[in-house]
């Protein structure tokens, strides 16, 4: 059980409204990712759900029961913090046991759960070490271990991977996804990294200045962004936005075209441009093309496409993949 629903939830710090009233439904067993630029209120929203901040207005219910004024510990949620927030003077075993000890659980059951969590997270050999003697990835796993032994109805993660190096981040991403599949528990995951959002989420919530811009599955957001913000935020490299004549021709204030939806040719095409920097990744080549009258356009070409700095190329958008936006930035 782990369905959470937010009803007209808002949060202000003093006079500053960080979260304007918003509604959100999170279903049992879902992997929901809150994504948005830094400072848009993702952590605040997560902390409201956790009970670490008081709501300014609105209501939160968990599993159908009202939890608006419940203390954090009573909500049955477990949180993994960005800084891991491990207890530095306790061993890994004691760290993981802490919530169980606080709940007054019988020691045999505690040991059983700790052993289980340690096995799942590959921590068995480290149970008697202190957090200071562990690597970043191991600390992260201890923090997750401390969360799973409580068998919460939902997990909350606040940018759990942002302190790890790139390779470890990819690994931990997979481990968290695996964990979600095994436990089938609701998870709410906060990140500013749209790649993490796209790869992990069942449902993505795009936040911008506290507003929910769009909620949907990764591919829905990729294929049908409701506005320019979501279109620009989701997808890597970023969508190209073009205003002026090419947009007017298609009956829009501006159009957006993803780098992977442009075809490059040496001979002919809609727009002529000069190649600037080109990034050869082997599988793909990313070109930064300076198009007359439009400006810099990012293009994804196949890995075999070899160009040099200053060469002339022609670009044509794939017509049905073009996103059209009105003057207010909404999709048409």
């Amino acid at each position: 059980m782990g369905s959470i629903s937010l009803n007209k939830v808002s949060k202000s710090f003093g006079d500053v409204q960080v979260i304007p009233p918003l509604d959100l439904e999170i279903n049992d067993g879902e992997f929901v990712v809150f994504v948005g630029p830094s400072g848009c209120g993702k952590s605040t929203l997560l902390r409201l759900i956790a009970g670490l901040e008081d709501l300014t207005s609105g209501a939160i219910s968990i599993d159908g029961a009202d939890a608006t004024n419940a203390a954090p510990a009573q909500r049955g949620l477990a949180m993994v913090f960005q800084s891991y927030a491990l207890y530095p003077h306790m061993t890994v075993r004691k760290n993981i046991a802490f919530p169980l000890k606080m709940a007054g659980m019988d020691p045999a059951e505690q040991d059983r759960r700790i052993a289980g969590a340690a096995k799942v997270l590959n921590l068995t050999d480290y149970l008697d070490r202190r957090p200071g003697q562990l690597s970043g990835g191991q600390r992260q796993r201890v923090a997750i271990g401390r969360a799973i032994v409580r068998e919460p109805s939902a997990f909350l993660f606040d940018e759990p991977l942002s302190n790890l190096d790139a390779a470890l981040r990819v690994n931990m991403r997979l481990e968290i996804c695996d964990l979600h599949k095994t436990l089938a528990t609701t998870m709410i995951y906060v990140t500013h990294d749209q790649v993490e959002a796209m790869t992990m989420a069942d449902k993505i919530v795009v936040l911008h200045d506290g507003y929910i811009e769009q909620v949907g599955s990764p591919l829905e957001l990729y294929e049908n962004p409701v506005n320019k913000f979501v279109a620009g935020f989701i997808g890597s490299p970023k969508m190209n936005f073009i205003a002026g004549a090419p947009a007017q021709k298609r009956g829009a204030d501006s159009i957006g075209i993803r780098p992977e939806h442009l075809t490059v040719s040496r001979d002919a095409g809609e727009w002529a441009g000069v190649v600037g920097v080109s990034e050869h990744l082997g599988s793909d080549t990313f070109l930064h093309v300076n198009v007359d009258g439009i400006g810099m356009v990012n293009v994804r070409a196949s890995g075999e496409f070899r160009v040099k700095y200053g060469e002339q190329v022609f670009l044509s958008p794939i017509e049905e993949k073009i996103h059209r936006f009105d003057a207010a930035g909404l999709s048409i």
């Binding site: 670490l52 954090p72 510990a73 477990a78 401390r146």
Partner: peptide
């Protein structure tokens, strides 16, 4: 954050 983690852990 440690304090908050402990709060969530029911301390």
């Amino acid at each position: 954050e440690q304090q908050e983690a402990a709060e969530m852990d029911g301390a």
